[in-house]
Design a protein around this nucleic acid. Structure first.
Lengths: 269, 269
DNA sequence: TAGATCGGTTCATTTATTGAACCATTATTG
DNA sequence: CAATAATGGTTCAATAAATGAACCGATCTA
């Protein structure tokens, strides 16, 4: 692992819940030596990526990230295009909706929207999503570049008892997603969270990212699941359009079939 | 210089004018070896800080900066508070207005607003502002922590023929700013740009950042300069208030005196 | 077709990174 | 209130990682 990666990884330990973190705390979280962490922090501080609270000595994200984000937004305005479909999805389901983008071999959280319908809800505080353990990740494996699986199986970290930790198990989940058009994670990343994800595509019909709904498990009834699937498909269509992409026809077919099957089930009993 | 710094410095070469840059171009700009640059880029790509255009092979800023910027703004919401005073300032002067924040020992561009009054205008594409060569930098030296000067004099890079390159010259400009309440740069960073800056303060009356107007030199008449000074003082008062800060009374006195002197001059001829 | 440029790779040399042990301060606590 | 255990920060010899000249194959240009 390069120093660059180690240093920048530290930025991942800051969150809305913990916007300021001290040196020792950060060492524990990153499981690194104090001197090392300190030098990494100092380097990031000199660059304005983090800054230090002069009183508490704790660190927080610095102002240097702002112009970079602005540049990214004006160059590739994906966030804006994802925002309003995501809001609609969160409102429809009453759960947390989020969009992640595929960059190289990894999946990054782009924007998330929490519903205010319930006091308990999923909070998206992870920036890089594990491919094998999240609905979004499995969705990327199912519909993204094939070599993504090679990266995924390097570290099959067991986040919960439900996490798929063998190549075969991950492959099976991926296959299921490819057959239905929906990727699912039932407590495989966080134990009480049940997620469903669908792919978003770029102008070449390649996977650009994923839209997902992360729901509190005990609220995820078959009815809500169906509503979620319908909402996800609409959100993916909207975001794909906003990003100037097109949904491959075979994906369209998959979704139509899955949604029709759901409706059948609803009419049957 | 640490690898972390070298790698992250590469991010500085992307701009609105050049949002996508190839490997060789980047090597020339950063004056570094190709292999080194390539490895730095690869590291940043793996972290999502940059991504590669699969067709042109050129690199651009990646999506990983977006959640960081969002976290920064929710933690330290300064951008929002600066935006509308900045807009007013740009409209008043017809030139480019911008705000920078002091983070540790360096000054970072926070947000800039260009006026549409003229087709030629200053473009703020630098993220870290040199302390000795810009109005904002001199302003920070004049009203910020005293140890800032130590950092400033380490590299007195001659950006133009007008740049102050001796400690004495920088000290003289700083002293002038301290006496008038306004820091000025006449072509010391970019030859045709004339800038004026004033400080913005935090809740302790310490320097939090700077507001500045960067004007095209030949448009900067004494009349526009006076209008700019008045506008800057208003902008600083508004932004300082929005950030929950207070302007020290001695600064208030300085500004009043300077603006009154300006009015005298205007009435005299 | 010959030369130039591009992105990307290799490997011996060099240089920066590492972490145990060390301070100096600042809370905690019996 | 003194003892203890945190905290942030620093040092330096051992070591692991970064470096860059030279190289490759693919495009592009004249």
């Amino acid at each position: 692992m390069s120093v660059v990666a180690k240093a920048i990884e530290l930025l991942g330990y800051f969150s809305k819940e913990m916007p300021e973190v001290g040196l020792s705390e950060l060492c524990r979280m990153a499981k690194r030596d104090k001197a090392t962490t300190y030098r990494h922090l100092s380097a990031l501080e000199a660059l304005g990526f983090i800054e230090q609270n002069r009183i508490t000595k704790a660190y927080r994200i610095g102002p240097a990230v702002l112009p970079l984000a602005e540049l990214r937004e004006t160059t590739v305005p994906r966030r804006e295009g994802a925002l309003s479909p995501l809001k609609a999805l969160a409102d429809l389901t009453g759960e947390t909706a989020h969009v992640a983008v595929l960059s190289g071999q990894s999946l990054h959280s782009l924007v998330s929207r929490e519903s205010t319908a319930h006091s308990t809800r999923a909070v998206m505080d992870v920036r890089q999503l594990p491919l094998h353990a999240t609905a979004s990740g499995l969705c990327a494996l199912a519909f993204g570049p094939t070599d993504l699986m090679d990266t995924a199986i390097v570290h099959l970290h067991p986040f919960t008892a439900q996490t798929a930790t063998t190549q075969d198990a991950v492959a099976a989940l991926t296959k299921l997603a490819q057959e239905t058009g929906f990727a699912e994670s039932k407590g495989s990343f966080e134990s009480d969270i049940h997620s469903i994800a669908v792919p978003v595509f770029d102008h070449q019909g390649q996977l650009a990212g994923t839209v997902a709904v992360a729901g509190v498990a005990n609220r995820m009834t078959p009815e809500l699941e169906q509503k979620t699937r319908t909402g996800l498909v609409k959100a993916s269509r909207d975001i794909t359009r906003n990003w100037g992409g097109t949904i491959p026809s075979h994906i369209d077919v998959l979704w139509r079939k899955s949604l029709e099957a759901d409706q059948q089930k609803e009419l049957a009993p």
